[in-house]
Amino acid sequence: MASSAVKKREGEIIDVVEEVKRLIISKIKDQETAELALELFKKFYYEGTRAAKEYVRELIEKIVRGESIASQA
């Protein structure tokens, strides 16, 4: 097997997660929104839609209880 081919194309490697994170940070100036976007992406990517929705519901409940969501996001 030709390992040289692997080395040759190392520059072409795409890490989607890192790419998405980079784009989120670069596109959102508001830090809280960016953090929220990153958290949401991680939830959707690693834990699935249900967990992500649950996360948003927790945020809603926190706001309703009068708690801060800054640390959460």
């Binding site: 997660v17 998405v20 949401l40 992406f41 959707f44 990517y45 992500a52």
Partner: peptide, 8 residues
């Protein structure tokens, strides 16, 4: 690996 973005 971008289906999560669609789902999001």
């Amino acid at each position: 690996g971008i289906s999560a973005l669609e789902e999001a």
